[in-house]
């Protein structure tokens, strides 16, 4: 339990919120609402998996919102051009991976600070998209675009399975694969990792590219829930994703954190907005409450791990 103290505080918060909701908000735990909640938070969840890796290696990526928008539009254009959905999925992932690779290249090989690189790509990509689309939506999509042409239930179930598999893959990969361990090693002390024979540059590059690809996947999966695609999607998405990862206990300085924590963080922040409506709290205070939750989560994290601040961070690793 001790090694999971970071996640524990978020888990406690979620349990408390659930108790409140179960007693006060009728229908919050209905199957329908849970399915809606899952779909609404699915993009954040998928991208947060990649973001966790990036933050674990001691980097950050604030361009995911812009990449998300670009991939959404690319998906729509592919579909309108008559490409089958599976192919569109591939194209979205490749487009996302390409954007991620640009970020990763600058960060890993030119050693430019990741926050600067991704700040630049965030602005440049968003404005390129605005310039090219002039804000117009991608409409007139083929009828088999929505839900990939299957029913809503099949799509929801399929996406759920996919997200769960992805989470498992990341959890197990970080724990048991060599490359997973190198992520922690690089984030804890990059020089030491290099000396130990880890190709940290390639690792950082890969992690950024992977996050790009995941962003593309999220964009595609989100786009098919509708029958037209706005060109301004994903505004502010980066903040949501980073906040979820941070609330989940991943240290922004790299080296410590878990996928489980991220999943809990997404769950907590993602359910707050809806929960407030269910509890009849005015929408005006939503942002303040979210900020309060982020702050209290990190303060709790800090207090619960304060006594072992100087301990070797490898101790905090699972397993």
């Amino acid at each position: 339990m001790k090694e999971h103290s970071r996640e524990a505080s978020v888990a406690v918060a979620i349990v408390l919120l659930m108790l409140v909701l179960a007693t006060l908000a009728h229908g919050y735990f209905s199957r329908e609402n849970l399915a809606d909640l899952f779909l609404a938070n699915m993009p954040v969840m998928i991208i947060a998996l990649g973001m966790t890796l990036i933050i674990l290696t001691g980097q950050i990526d604030i361009s995911v919102g812009s990449v998300f928008a670009i991939c959404s539009v690319v998906t729509g254009l592919c579909a309108r051009g008559g490409l089958p959905a599976v192919f569109g999925l591939l194209v979205a992932c490749v487009a996302g991976a390409a954007c991620g690779a640009v970020n990763g290249g600058f960060v890993a090989y030119l050693r430019v600070p990741s926050i600067v690189v991704t700040l630049a790509t965030m602005v440049a990509l968003r404005d390129t998209l605005r310039w090219k689309t002039q804000g117009s939506w991608v409409g007139n999509l083929p009828s088999n675009f929505q839900w990939f042409g299957v029913t809503q239930q099949v799509y929801t179930a399929g996406t759920l399975v996919m997200v769960v598999l992805l989470i498992l893959l990341f959890v197990l990969g970080l724990r048991f694969l060599r490359v997973g361990r190198t992520v922690f090693a690089t984030g804890s002390n990059e020089t030491a990792a290099q000396i130990a024979g880890i190709n940290t540059k390639r690792l950082v590059f890969t992690v950024f590219t992977l996050t790009g690809a995941l962003t593309g996947l999220a964009a595609m999966l989100n786009s098919v829930r509708f029958n037209q695609i706005p060109s301004n999607s994903g505004l502010g998405l980066e903040m949501k994703v980073i906040a979820a990862v941070a609330v989940g206990g991943t240290a922004i300085t790299g080296g410590t954190g878990t996928i489980l924590g991220t999943v809990l963080g997404v769950g907590l922040l993602g359910s707050i907005g809806t929960a407030l409506t269910f509890l009849n709290v005015s929408a005006y205070w939503e942002k303040a409450i979210q900020g309060g939750i982020i702050l209290s989560a990190i303060i709790l994290n800090a207090l619960s791990t304060h006594h072992k601040k100087h301990a070797n961070s490898i101790n905090a690793l699972p397993g």
């Binding site: 941070a246 922004i252 939503e286 900020g291 309060g292 982020i294 303060i299 800090a302």
Partner: peptide, 27 residues
């Protein structure tokens, strides 16, 4: 207080207060 006092990372602290201050203004 949070950054210097509690030694929390500035990026995350100010990400939280970014949301908090704007939220208070809206509220």
């Amino acid at each position: 207080l949070l950054i210097a006092g509690l030694r929390l990372p500035p990026l995350i602290v100010t990400l939280g207060t970014y949301s908090l201050y704007r939220g208070i203004a809206e509220g």
